[in-house]
């Protein structure tokens, strides 16, 4: 199946493009079936609000570095926004399919399962956008002057960074989810990933408030490009030139994870076949 990504080239690409709209529609309908779950899942994202409460209490006696109360509010609202928009459930779906064997019928279809999954997860984005729209209003009210509404260039960078974050997280989840073919505890690995991400992406604390060597190290790790970087560009904490530079780094991470995900998928398929036959 993975041949379709490489060898047959153009025909395969046309094939995927033809099937994609239908897959998106299926994904959209599927998500409507589980809307209660979606709301519960949304409520689990309360950590940025708690951190916002904490830091605004701290900043009541004066700004912390570049961050005053308004900056903290904007930062954590941005976090919430990006986290909800760019999240996906791929890792849970993949591990379940691999463990329960429901991956097998997917392999019979003439489209790479990762493409099919990407359509399912992308289809959830409009609904996610609707759900976060109230946040957007609060963000505008709290820090409107920080948003790049009148600067198309910065706006484009921020939106690209958010789209890149979606792709990067999707690919990371694909890698960790595929590991389920090799080890039993793929979900525990993802838990550890989330723990590291909470610190190194700026989700818990803005990276620039961490010790300088941690903040520096985070620039060479993928975590920051999933949350911290898109948020910082969105609320204008980053200059245009350095944001452009970091878009490049993000693209590198995306390319690297794409290669790794496809290679791992190939290896996993060989093992998966061995499971059944």
């Amino acid at each position: 199946m993975s041949r379709r990504f490489g060898g047959e080239g153009l025909r395969a690409a046309r094939h995927v493009l033809r099937a994609y709209p239908a897959l998106l529609r299926v994904g959209f309908a599927d998500m409507f079936a589980y809307r209660a779950e979606l709301v519960v899942w949304l409520l689990t994202m309360n950590m940025p609000l708690v951190m916002m409460a904490l830091w605004t209490a701290v900043a009541a006696t004066g700004p912390v570095g570049r961050f005053g109360q308004r900056e903290f509010v904007a930062y954590y609202l941005g976090m919430l926004l990006v986290r909800i928009l760019t999240g996906s459930w791929l890792v849970w779906e993949l591990t379940m399919e691999i463990r329960q064997g429901t991956l097998a019928p997917r392999l019979l279809r003439p489209i790479h399962p990762l493409w099919a999954h990407s359509a399912m997860q992308l289809a959830a984005v409009p609904m996610r956008a609707v759900l976060v729209s109230p946040l957007l209003f609060i963000l505008y009210w709290a820090a409107g002057e920080r948003l790049p509404l009148h600067e198309p260039e910065r706006m484009a960078i921020a939106l690209t960074a958010i789209a890149g974050a979606w792709m990067l997280l999707f690919l990371i989840m694909a890698i960790i989810g595929t590991l389920a073919a090799f080890v039993e505890s793929a979900l525990s690995i993802f838990d550890v990933w989330l723990g590291a991400q909470a610190v190194l992406s700026g989700y818990l604390v803005p990276l620039e408030l961490l010790p300088p060597w941690v903040a520096q190290a985070a620039r060479y790790l993928p975590f920051r490009y999933i949350l911290g970087f898109p948020v910082e560009t969105l609320i204008g904490l980053e200059s245009t030139s350095s944001a452009l530079h970091e878009l490049g780094v993000q693209a590198l991470f995306i390319a690297g994870s794409l290669v790794a995900a496809l290679a791992l998928w190939r290896a996993a398929l060989r093992r998966f076949a061995a499971f059944g036959g």
Partner: peptide, 27 residues
């Protein structure tokens, strides 16, 4: 279908690591 309920429970519980005086108003 509430696999997520235990996640929700734990995520709210996480806020308990901070003294209550940190929070204001509705929270």
């Amino acid at each position: 279908k509430v696999d997520n309920l235990s996640y929700l429970f734990i995520s709210i519980f996480d806020a308990g690591r901070w003294p209550i005086d940190v929070f204001k108003g509705a929270l």
